[in-house]
Structures are given as C-alpha cells and as structure tokens.
Nucleic acid binder design. Sequence first.
DNA 1: CGCGGGGTTGAGGTCAATCAATCAATGTGG
DNA 2: CCACATTGATTGATTGACCTCAACCCCGCG
Lengths: 244, 244
Amino acid sequence: MAHVSSSNVFIRKLQNISDLTQSDIAVLESIPLQKREYRANQDLVREGDRPTHSFVVLDGMVGSTKLTGEGKRQITSFFVPGDLPDLHGLHLSVMDCTFSPLTSARLGFMRHDALRAICNQHASISTVFWRSTLIDAAIYREWVTNVGRRDGYTRMAHILCELIVRLRSVGRIEDHVAELPITQSALGDALGLSAVHVNRLLQELRRDGLISTVGSRFHAVDWTGLVRAGDFQATYLHQMTEQA
Amino acid sequence: MAHVSSSNVFIRKLQNISDLTQSDIAVLESIPLQKREYRANQDLVREGDRPTHSFVVLDGMVGSTKLTGEGKRQITSFFVPGDLPDLHGLHLSVMDCTFSPLTSARLGFMRHDALRAICNQHASISTVFWRSTLIDAAIYREWVTNVGRRDGYTRMAHILCELIVRLRSVGRIEDHVAELPITQSALGDALGLSAVHVNRLLQELRRDGLISTVGSRFHAVDWTGLVRAGDFQATYLHQMTEQA
DNA sequence: CGCGGGGTTGAGGTCAATCAATCAATGTGG
DNA sequence: CCACATTGATTGATTGACCTCAACCCCGCG
C-alpha cells in the first residue's frame, strides 16, 4: 500500500493551491527533510512550545488540538498528507495549540531558519507558504460555522466531505473511498460532539445510504447526497482545480 | 468622544504584534487610504467576491460572517479598530466569507496592488502582514474551541474577555469599560447561541457580579473573575505586550 | 487467557432552541 | 404632536438535540 511520492506529496499539495514554477519546485525539493514516524496521540508540538521546526505530513493524519480548562479536547482542524500544520510557527513564536497524530503518521521536519532563508530569497515561495496558512485559516472559519450553526448530522456529513476532497486532491482516494483510521471519539472532538453521538450519527448516515464503512475505510456511496446533507461547498478550500 | 489617531490605530495594532522600524512605519503611513463610513449590517465584501482592496477598521466593529444552507448566520470573528479583517484577500482571490459592520463603522480601503508592491519591496512589512493573518487564524482556532467545547456561560465570558483585551490593546478601553454597541443577536451568532439564550447568559454574568452594562457600555466589574469564568488565556492573541 | 481500547446500545437528564408575548426605545408619516 | 411601525431586550413555557452514565460486545495483543 506504499504511496508514490513520499516527500513530494508536499509539493503536490502546494501545486494544488498555486502555480509553481520549475525553479520554485526545485527549491522546495532542496529543503532538507528530517523524517520521523509517530504513533497516534504522541504529542508532536505542545501548546506553549517555541518550536524551531515546522513539519509536513507525509502519511497519516494530524490534528491541531486545544484543551479547555475543564479538560475537554477540541480538534480545531485535521491535516492530511501534504499539509503543513504548524507552518505558522515560522512567525508566531509560541504555539497556541498542540499537534498530535490521530493515526500513525510519518512526518518531515524542516528547520525554521532554512525556511526563513528560502522565504527571503524566493518571494514566490514565501507567497505560497503564506497562502497555505491562509487556507488553513479559511478552514478554521468554516469549522467555526460548522460547529456553531449546523446540527450534528449535517456537521458530520460536512466534515466527511471536507476530508474526502482534501484527501482526493493529494491522490489519497480512489473513487470515493477514504482510509480514515481515526477513532469516533476523535471525530467527536473535531465536531464538538460526544463519541456516543458520533456513533449514532454515522449509523444514520449509513441508514440514509450516504456512506458505508468497512473497518476504517469510509466509502461515500452517494457523494452528491453527502454533499447536500453536509451543506458542503468546497470553495473555502481554495483549491485551484475545482472538485466535482 | 473622538479618538486619537484615526488612521494610526492600524499602525498601533501592528506595533502590538511585532517590532516595527521607523522606516517600516513611514512606509505604512504612506499607504493611500480611502476612508468610508458604514452603517451596521451593510455588507462590505461578500462571499464569492473577488475584491481589489483590503480594508482596515478605523472605528466600530466588523464581523466576518458565513451563512449556512439553512440560512443561519455564524460570525466567525470580530474585528476591532486597527484590524485588517480581509487582508487574506491579498492572496486568496475569492472570498469565502462576508464582512459586515456590526456597528456603524469607519473603514480605510487599500488597493491590493499597492499592498503587493509594498510587500515585494519591504520583506519586514510582508512579514508583519503575514503575522497579522496568522493571529487571525489563531483567533479562529480559539473560537472553534470556544464554540465546540465550552458551555454557554463560559463561552460568553470568554468572548467578552477577548474583546476587552483586544480593544484595550488599541486604547479603546479605559479601566475595564468597553463600548460594544452590538446586538445580543450578533453575540449569539458569534457564539453559536440563540439571542434569547444570550440575554439570559448576560443576566447570569451580571447576577454573578462579573459584568455590568449601561446601554451598550460593558463594564468588567470583576476582571479576574470574568477571566476565570471564561477560561480565558490571552496567549492565543499573540500580543507582544502581555495583558494583565 | 485476560486485558484494554474502540464501537455499540439503552435510559435518563440537561442545556439550550424555539415559540410566543410583552416592553422599551426609536423612528416615521400624516 | 400623535398613531403606528420597527428593532432590540426581556420573560415564560415547551420541546428537542445532545450529553452522561453504564453496560456490553468485539477484536487485537501481551
């Protein structure tokens, strides 16, 4: 099940959100990547940390999480292969959230000083990185809306749509089948719902013929139905190639 | 009731989040500002638009809002004087949310091409702008958490704390009294709550001696109590000068 | 084999939504 | 200047979405 392009998934993602010249790509490929493997729930970067590296997701899924004073966890965003979850650390010295893998994951770490040097020398790359963080922000905005104003059923369908579109854009999906080995309780923490309720919502989505699951494989049986049920419009993902 | 520094509130805000050199400031001051007045709820920029300008809030409050398919409104963030709500338009061509003033407001519009030119010539200013958008993103993250995992009472206290800190950092607050002429239903749309419930929560906060209100003036009678009740830590605002 | 994590199910409780009135403040046209 | 409309705040009663608690099942694993 080895995927093509291990370190290149990151370039593929950036190509998805902007036009890169050949020389840009060459520069990006030259960035030294320190690769490491993680198991789920091993914290990568913690709230309060002052990291010296940012990382790219090569395989698996990562979540940015926050804990409330009451000890409840909120996942504020998912990150899929190609994403740069904590790129903002480049200009925000102290982390305001924790990053942890939601599945076993392979990550590539890049030194901040190397990234800064590249940004200074290559305005176009600086812009791409900026743009990447802006899309993250757009996703956060959508999540505020999702959690704040959509009911559980819609919310769940919405997040599945988002994941499927994002995974597809980096070639991690054939047809409408996504490999999502995340727990229902992680889904709950992302949606602001309890794990129990997540379970029932998934049953409802299955009953309505929108999805089917085998183990950790999610199949969007009725994609247009899922999109409709999830009140989902992909514009907030700001991809260059529009998804169906 | 005229405030000092009309167009300079924007520079003051940027100084709050980074070190600016005198020459940076001179450049920022040279940006042509087209000033305009708005009344509450007049849309400024709409979801789907491709704006050619970004704007700075000079007076009043602005919200970034989204509508769900069901017609429910979510405010995904508040913006106070000095803020650049749609600076992301510089690198994200099509807007994924609508900006509208929540109070009567005075705004200053800046041409994108002028901003891009400045970013190309002054790396430090480009970085400040980037950083500003990253802080917006950090606020969105906190809002996801607030809406997703805190109960109404805490949520309300939290947002009041955020507003007070942000307003204070641009000199819009004496003591702990904030002028917030926004409606309770706008507060509800920001918190993912109904206007009715907002009303009851405010009563509770008053009853508990945390705030008092006279018309649109919010007074944080017991600031530390409010901070505690709101589970509020200002680190996510990434201000250089730590607030008490 | 026993343990533990994750998924599933049922029952009961609660926070907050909805519906519906009332009231105050403001504005408007005749 | 007053009848009337409008907007926002407030209150009460009812409903419902989702939570919590608690059990049970399944499966992989030491």
